[in-house]
Design a protein around this nucleic acid. Structure first.
Lengths: 248, 248
DNA sequence: ATGGCGATTATGTATATACATATTGCAACG
DNA sequence: CGTTGCAATATGTATATACATAATCGCCAT
């Protein structure tokens, strides 16, 4: 770390200039101070503001551009983009990680918890043939103050009895399960859907607004473990997956 | 980085050195030539090999490190990391097969075919760095009498010259390409969207109705081949993927 | 032997500089 | 009046250089 030291850095985090520029700008964008479409200062202005070289500014801005937070146009400047989470490789789907990748604070909040004997619908979702105890959970994942995803989950208590003792008030069931139940197989279903009133209300969007729905059923050693449905507002989320062919 | 031919002399995309180093190393890792744990050449060796400055090599390696492909240790070198989970074999779907699985007659119909020199937007979608000839196609996949999916496709004619001779009147470009171009890598983006007027018109649905959008970029040996966007009416379609974890 | 210490080495970060490239606006020209 | 072409501008990429930092190796003294 060099002697540069522009303003006295309050608070004591030792950040490289690069990272400080990054987080400054990210914060402006995520806080809404710089709305989508806003032109952020030119490189040479930031160079002056941070008292550093253009290369350093350029590296930071390039990184923000690659992360999708801003868009750069030659001769015009750099502009704040609509936020989109391009994170999220298909397999993982830990919403906390997605949210934190966006630089936003994450929070989970339980809406409902119901222990019951599985009805026909529950059994269809889980792929169970016989009735048995299940836990039905509904909760909201927040990114900052805004709902990021609605989660509706069924857990097969015959396979994971200890889940029946858990309240899941602020702990999302996904990470909880992953730590306890080794899954051997999963099936994903992805589709688009118009938000009905209940979903619109929970996610704080307009009824009829398009949503991305990701459903997953998980088995462990042939036993159905859980079925979960995530509902994302269309504008909050892009699923991404990158892969090479299995052989040729 | 010379100004040499702007026009495509066949055979090579014009890649920046930075990108060339990136893709070279990525290819070695993904192909398995450099196994996990393998020490990749020191920066100064790569500097010599590519005849460039250490900064350029450093930038490329830093990027690979951030992407999680390699791990860097001071005084020791850079090492290929263990592959992190990601299984997710979401198969490239052939729409004909989907439709026929529903027991409905399949038909493809071309709406538009345009051969042009790639503009900025085309290049962004394809991931091209230099201008060149592209083929822009738009077509409809029918299930019975109803539109099943709208396809908007760009083909990089520098990579697949013979596509420029094809009319694609009733042959969907997807299957045509698969038979000719072995792909080595693909990137998928999945999201929900409200139908705009043009899409609503093509698909014969209401404007604002939710749609599932699947975008795919495909590379063959580091050359961008095609970008395609499928738009499905929400009610017509569910994407499915089933997979097992690669490890833990 | 062994614990400490300095030299060596590879990466991390930053600088100044140079030139390429894309886009915009304006001015000159037919 | 519109078209062309040039200058200005902002970003893109690469260079050479400098010094900081972390980890390791080997030497030396206890």
């Amino acid at each position: 770390m060099s002697l540069v030291e522009t303003d006295d850095i309050e608070g004591g985090e030792i950040l490289s200039l690069h990272q400080r520029i990054l987080s400054d700008i990210r914060e402006k964008i995520l806080s809404g101070a710089w709305a989508p479409g806003h032109r952020i200062p030119f490189e040479h202005e930031l160079t002056a503001h941070y008292n550093c070289s253009r290369m350093t500014v350029n590296k930071a801005l390039s990184q923000l551009a690659k992360a999708g937070l801003i868009e750069r146009r030659r001769r015009s400047g750099s502009f704040v983009r609509q936020p989109q989470s391009q994170a999220a490789v298909l397999e993982l789907h830990d919403i906390r990680i997605e949210v934190e990748a966006l630089g936003l604070p994450y929070r989970y909040e339980r809406l409902e918890r119901l222990r019951r004997r599985s009805g026909a619908e529950d059994r269809a979702l889980l792929g169970l043939s016989a009735p048995g105890p299940v836990l039905a959970l509904e909760g909201l994942h927040f990114a900052g103050e805004r709902p990021f995803a609605l989660e509706q989950r069924l857990i097969n208590l015959s396979a994971v009895a200890e889940a029946g003792e858990e309240e899941f008030l602020e702990i999302a069931p996904g990470p909880w399960l992953i730590g306890r139940v080794p899954w051997s197989e999963a099936e994903h279903r992805i589709r688009a859907m118009a938000a009905d009133d209940a979903i619109a209300d929970a996610l704080d969007i307009d009824p009829g607004a398009p949503c991305l729905v990701v459903e997953r059923r998980t088995w462990s050693a042939e036993h159905p473990v859980t079925h979960v449905r995530f509902v994302y507002p269309a504008d909050s989320h892009t699923l991404m997956a990158r892969f090479t062919p299995s052989q040729g």
